[in-house]
Design a protein around this nucleic acid. Structure first.
Lengths: 112, 112
DNA sequence: CTCCTCTGCTACTATTTCCATAGCACAGAA
DNA sequence: TTCTGTGCTATGGAAATAGTAGCAGAGGAG
């Protein structure tokens, strides 16, 4: 499937508004995860496949979309975040802390 | 499919780490979008379906997961973010501004 | 050159998920 | 009783994902 980009029609929205294109792009399997796994530096195809616990077909599809979206690029050390991708990851980093709080909030009634 | 929750095995990760459960939960069609569409207040099932431009089966599946994750609840005015959901949305709000910057960055070479 | 390894990726089938539409069940109002 | 609004289920076909196998090119070693 074509990579969602601002200005283009995307799944779930014909307006092409950037936020909708972004939500479509990130709402695909392993898209968020791939960005996440690249947070500490480049990984090659197979290392990324292992880190994200996925298969080459999905990984390759997501990489193509993320590269088209200019969030990821392929360099000498493997796949890496572009400056744009790094800035997106920076806005997503608070998710990590949030997820920990979420686990605690659920745990108070589910895990004891 | 079961809703991903911290402490449980999720798609793409057997560790149950909260961030992985969250990335799985949010990496499903319309999950991010639903949270986004509820940002200004409650919407009933059909209004939400229209706002997110989806169909009842997917909407219902996502709502069940989001309710189980305690991010969304069903009240007298329809579906609304819980306090937990609101805090998650708050951490996601910077995405909107980022998406606009992204569009400009891509536009400089794609849209002129 | 030949063989080996590493890397990026394609092929293929099975399964899961999603799309799109139709329609049911219940509640309240008229 | 009929009508409307709301939440949701059913269904069949389309699309995405899972999981495994394997190919092609770029080195390096012999």
């Amino acid at each position: 499937m074509a990579a969602p980009k601002p200005g283009k029609r995307v799944r779930g929205s014909a307006t092409g508004r950037p936020i909708m294109a972004l939500l479509d792009l990130l709402g695909r399997r392993m898209a968020l995860r791939i960005l996440w796994e690249l947070r500490d530096g480049p990984l090659n195809f197979r290392a990324l496949q292992e880190a994200a616990a996925t298969n080459p077909s999905v990984l390759n599809a997501r990489l193509a979309e993320l590269r088209e979206a200019r969030l990821v690029e392929h360099g000498p050390d493997g796949y890496a975040l572009t400056p744009l991708g790094q800035s997106l990851l920076a806005t997503l980093l608070p998710l990590h802390a949030w997820a920990e709080d979420w686990a605690k909030a659920l745990g108070r009634r589910r895990l004891g």
